[in-house]
């Protein structure tokens, strides 16, 4: 960042435009430091283990072929489900297995993430009140792929699904009232997607403004 300041001491118009264009790259601040150290930094991956406990095996058996992958990572049990016609039935199965509390539905955009099978992902975080266990059910989705809503099973899914639709643009079928929740109704686009960059104009209010104003005086 220091080199850049040296290069642009005066706020000329076209140069400022350049700074603006550079901004998204600059946003990840540690990058210049990363260039100095070896070109390919080693990526440490949290290890994936085979599910060992009985209830985990039982649940995988119950879900049958719809399970794409099941593993334990960082002490958390993950199941990757296929998005097919059994989707709702599988969740009903899971609920009957004791997971009666849906804590959270998180949507993820894997656009810049290495090793993800499809672009989007949904993570259902479930908890069982009786067994005191947690479970994460994951579903991967392509762009424009729709997913059935679990609102009939857990009413709490309402807000979570609306949020996933609002910020990530994932469409849930088989439910009513899927509309924007946090953003205004006339908003265009889905801001949590990775191809949406930072909003321009933010930098105007940072320290560069102090310099600009002083030079005007």
């Amino acid at each position: 960042m220091s080199e850049e300041l040296k290069n642009n001491p005066s706020p000329e118009k076209d140069k400022k435009e350049e700074v603006k264009a550079k901004k998204p790259v600059e946003g990840e601040k540690p990058k210049p430091a990363a260039k100095k150290v070896p070109p390919k930094p080693q990526i440490v991956v949290a290890p994936k283990e085979e599910p060992a406990e009985d209830w985990q095996k039982e649940l995988i058996k119950k879900l049958g072929d719809d399970v794409e992958e099941a593993y334990v990572s960082v002490g958390e049990f993950n199941i990757v489900l296929k998005n097919n016609e059994n989707f709702i039935a599988n969740f009903e199965n899971i609920k009957q297995h004791g997971f009666d509390y849906l804590a959270d539905i998180s949507s993820v955009d894997y656009l810049k993430f290495e090793g993800a099978p499809k672009r989007f992902g949904l993570s259902y975080h479930l908890y069982s009140m009786n067994m005191n266990r947690r479970l994460r059910v994951k579903v991967f989705l392509d762009e424009n792929e729709k997913v059935p809503s679990v609102m009939d099973i857990w009413k709490t899914a309402d807000f979570h699904e609306r949020e996933a639709y609002d910020l990530m643009g994932i469409v849930f079928t088989g439910r009513q009232g899927l509309k924007r929740i946090l953003l205004p109704d006339d908003w265009v686009g889905h801001p949590l997607r990775k191809d949406v960059d930072k909003v321009e104009g933010r930098e105007e209010y940072t320290a560069k403004l102090v310099r600009k104003l002083r030079e005007e005086d």
Binding site: M1, S2, L5, K6, P9, K29, P30, E203, T206, A207, K208, V210, R211
Partner: peptide, 19 residues
């Protein structure tokens, strides 16, 4: 000494140093 540590860590980018 213009090490720029504060510039880099500032979440709102309100510091600017010309060394």
């Amino acid at each position: 000494v213009c090490c720029m540590a504060c510039v880099r860590i500032c979440p709102t980018q309100v510091i600017e140093i010309k060394p």
